[in-house]
Design a protein around this nucleic acid. Structure first.
Lengths: 346, 346
DNA sequence: TTAGGGTGTGGAACCAGTTCCAGGGTTTGT
DNA sequence: ACAAACCCTGGAACTGGTTCCACACCCTAA
């Protein structure tokens, strides 16, 4: 009854259709060099025998795995942010009949490159054609990947400690202009005392700080950076920043948070102290995570199209695979400030 | 496509080490039938030539892809819940040198099985050994998967419309006992008027409702089901339920939400109406999403170990691959009520 | 001395596809 | 009428590993 169907091969199909094996291959690869009747006969035989070509065998000859790996490094778990990038990679890839492998990696920035233990996917050869690097990326990981000659594209916003001379394909989004526009918006709404809250030792938060500072400078306003000591997390950072913001004289009328989590922490701590957003203080975030719309009022923040990042990474990787000697490129995707409910007109 | 540089093969390594190809293979597979000196010479040659065996070629012979696919169906995006399951699958798999492919699928429950368009991974043969099904699973998808004779394990909490006679490997968690314990906890805290808010047309929410009802019955308390009309989302469902809860006489002192999103919606709507959780009304959720701890006060909810689900799915799939004729099994993982700050002692 | 067992090694055959070349048939050009 | 060009087709050779069998060699026992 439940007999497992014997795996049919092209030789069996060839016999069933009374043609040669080469013809089967030609039909499968839809090369036009097959007459209409022969093609029909072959397709009929394929259907009758339930034949599905073995992907592995083809890949040996083609020297292409038609598969890439999405490698998430140094993340305790797959946050929605990276999950959406992965989704972008997958949806673009599957449209081109490319497959996406998911792997995670944990490493220290101080491990020498040749001592970094790569995940199993990268230890074998021919399993994947290329790599999309996401998560925090330090130079030693890059060196390690280069040492196995694996083409890759990096999601570059979380790249840390890289000199300008570094050359590799990268896709990122525009930290600087994101906060620049957000801050200009606040200024346009009449705000003058605006603080920026984030740990700027992270390069991406530093770039956001720079955007904020630029907007302040343009308007001859004083920039103020708020940090906090020993935060447990970004949310905690935000919570701890609240007190420091409120103790300033004159009291700031608005805060730009380095990301949505800091904004959330701030919002929560402010609310606990009986202050209302945006009535008492306006607030903007960065990243536009899922929770931003859920906050009450919903958070005005800088929107980043995560799917587009994934898609662009995949697109760039495929280009690299087609043209291995092409010069490296860097793409910065635009961000967009979305107005919701946390900024008030002064 | 540009020509890919030819990589070293075992034949070249064999020549370099002055041994036969069989010996190289034996060294690679660490079979003990190789003398110490020969092994050393081979390893040296491998190192010198930078040889990495071609995974594809081995797979043809082994008839194993050492790869499984995590298929997410009918989800607009990869939510943290499923992201963590995926992570569980990956971390367990990579320890066993198995690889995990990510793919997404959208289909209608009413499409006939043979008309469901499977993702590219499943159209080829030999690419993956098995499948882990997550997302909403209707019978027609199961039929479709069975038709291509692909071993699979389903994450069964979101299985819909399946008769009891259905036989397949599944892993799920305990909806019933989750709400049972949560409700008993509320009762233990002195609550008597407890409502349950959810759309129970979803089988999993129905099971949670049953757990709640059981606890109420045990204590001779009346169960009350709160639903709402045309919700846009679970959060919206929760928001719309708030009014219905408050209009009841006597006013309920506690609410069990079908999941954390409903709980969040409820919490927000209650707060807007000037009611405090847990002072005015106690609240418990289900799932223990990331946001639960972030709510203010943090949400008491039923914790589900998502990584464990993923791990168990992978484990079960590997068992199935090793023993294809084994009878189907079903594993229900325990849930745990976690006490945070949304329940008050009456 | 010979038989027997165990260990180590080489390489042909194999897996399931693709590629390519030779050859047959038909059409077109002169 | 004959050659050249073209289309279609069959199948050997190939890809890069694994498997397995034959065989050489060494050691021990009868």
């Amino acid at each position: 009854m439940e007999a497992v169907p014997r795996k049919t091969t092209i030789r069996e199909v060839a016999q069933a259709a009374s043609v040669g094996i080469g013809t089967i291959s030609r039909v499968l690869n839809s090369s036009s060099q097959v007459s209409r009747e022969t093609r029909a006969r072959v397709l009929e035989a394929i259907r009758r025998l339930g034949f599905r070509p073995n992907a592995q065998a083809r890949r040996i000859l083609k020297r292409r795995a038609e598969m890439v790996c999405f490698l998430l490094s140094n993340r305790d778990f797959l946050h929605p942010f990276h999950a959406r990038i992965l989704q972008g990679v997958e949806s673009y890839a599957s449209g081109l009949k490319q497959h996406v492998l998911f792997a995670a990696l944990h490493y220290s920035p101080r491990t020498p490159p040749d001592r970094i233990d790569l995940p199993p996917v990268l230890q074998e050869h021919g399993l994947i054609d290329g790599l999309i690097l996401a998560g925090t990326i330090y130079p030693n990981l890059l060196r390690r990947i280069e040492s196995i000659h694996m083409p890759f594209v990096a999601f570059s916003n979380n790249v840390v400690g890289m000199g300008d001379e570094e050359q590799f394909d990268q896709v990122g989004f525009d930290d600087f202009n994101g906060t620049l526009h957000a801050t200009r918006y606040l200024i346009g709404k009449g705000h003058r005392h605006i603080v920026f809250a984030a740990d700027v030792s992270y390069p991406w938060l530093w770039r956001r700080f720079e955007g904020y500072r630029q907007a302040m400078r343009e308007n001859k306003l004083k920039h103020v950076l708020i940090t906090s000591r020993n935060p447990q997390s970004f949310v905690d950072f935000g919570q701890k920043s609240a007190g420091r913001i409120l103790s300033r004289q004159p009291r700031p009328t608005a805060a730009v948070a380095g990301n949505d989590e800091i904004a959330y922490g701030l919002w929560r701590a402010l609310r606990r102290q009986g202050l209302k957003v945006p009535d008492d203080i306006s607030l903007v975030g960065f990243d536009d995570r899922e929770e931003a719309v859920l906050m009450d009022p919903p958070l005005s923040t800088v929107h980043v199209d995560k799917e587009e990042i994934g898609e662009t990474c995949m697109k760039m990787l495929l280009e690299r695979l087609h043209h291995p000697r092409m010069t490296f490129s860097q793409r910065i995707l635009p961000t967009e400030f979305v107005i919701r409910g946390t900024v008030r007109q002064l």
